[in-house]
């Protein structure tokens, strides 16, 4: 192939790609665009499938960091339901008139776990923190991520914060903190139980589930966004989160369904 032809072929290929139709996107009247905090991506996928089976409505899931999703909602993102990783962001959206008042409620409580990718490295009481036999302790940035703040609070309660602070490695979010530990670069780390727990046990490694009394509850709130105010399917999804099926999925992922904290979803 000479140079002119080869370049022509390449650019022709680009042109074909540019105008080729995308695979058909099924667009249905009962699609519910839902913004989901990245830490809840796994369970949400299963919940969406169950929701579709039970109601015929389809949750179209977009995941991201809670703060980034909120910025997108404020700038016109087409989401109708928001499942945040904290309680403050949905409250702020409601205050700013971007969410429907009275629809905000907890859907899940996250659990913090001290975890290592190595079997037997973490005892079931977290004593390894005091023995100090590790070089790095991974956690999410406490300024940005609720799980990071909960980890620091736990260490403070245990009186270990000052001693261990020089060994902190901070992830931008809980996903990155998990990657630090999961890849073995940090021997220990505070991660979300949902990242290492499936069906009643650790998927790998070893961990200490931090007693809930050691930190403020990791409450995750959901809210109906202004765009979904008149959409019955969006409200149905919010209600579905409290149903038996959704809660069983959450539990299998290491979340505690926030049943007791729930008020009825306003109709």
């Amino acid at each position: 192939m000479n140079n002119r032809n080869s370049a022509l072929v390449s650019f022709a290929a680009l042109a074909v790609i540019a105008v080729a139709p995308l695979l058909p996107v099924p667009a249905r009247a009962d699609d519910v665009p839902v913004a989901v905090a990245a830490n809840f991506a796994g369970p949400m996928k299963e919940i969406a499938a169950t929701f579709a089976g039970a109601t015929g409505h389809h949750a179209v899931v977009s995941t991201g960091a809670t703060g980034a999703l909120a910025a997108q909602v404020a700038n016109g993102a087409p989401f109708e339901v928001f499942l945040a990783a904290d309680a403050t962001t949905p409250a702020r959206l409601e205050k700013d008139g971007l969410a429907v008042p009275g629809t905000r409620h907890a859907y899940a409580l996250g659990r913090l776990v001290l975890w290592s990718a190595q079997e037997g490295a973490v005892d079931t009481a977290g004593a390894v923190l005091k023995s100090g036999d590790f070089a790095h302790l991974a956690l999410a940035n406490p300024k940005l991520a609720p799980y990071g703040a909960a980890a620091v609070e736990t260490l403070e309660k245990l009186g270990l914060r000052t001693a261990l602070e020089p060994r902190f490695v901070l992830g931008e979010n809980i996903g990155q903190a998990f990657q630090f530990v999961g890849s073995g670069n940090a021997e220990l780390g505070f991660v979300a139980l949902s990242q290492v727990w499936r069906d009643g046990r650790f998927t790998s490694g070893s961990g200490w589930i931090v007693p809930a009394a050691l930190h403020a509850p990791l409450q995750q709130d959901a809210v109906l966004l202004a765009r979904g105010a008149d959409h019955a399917a969006a409200r149905a999804l919010l209600e579905f989160l409290h149903g038996e099926k959704a809660q069983a999925i959450m539990r299998s992922y290491g979340y505690e369904p926030a049943v007791e904290a729930v008020g009825a979803v306003a109709r």
Partner: peptide, 26 residues
């Protein structure tokens, strides 16, 4: 693209964002 696109399947979820989604969901 993650910021401008909003990670919407079929509309703005490009490959890099889809990979990020897979990683986040483990």
């Amino acid at each position: 693209v993650l910021m401008i696109g909003g990670n919407i399947p079929g509309a703005t979820r490009v490959a890099s964002v889809q990979i990020y989604d897979h990683v986040e969901a483990l």
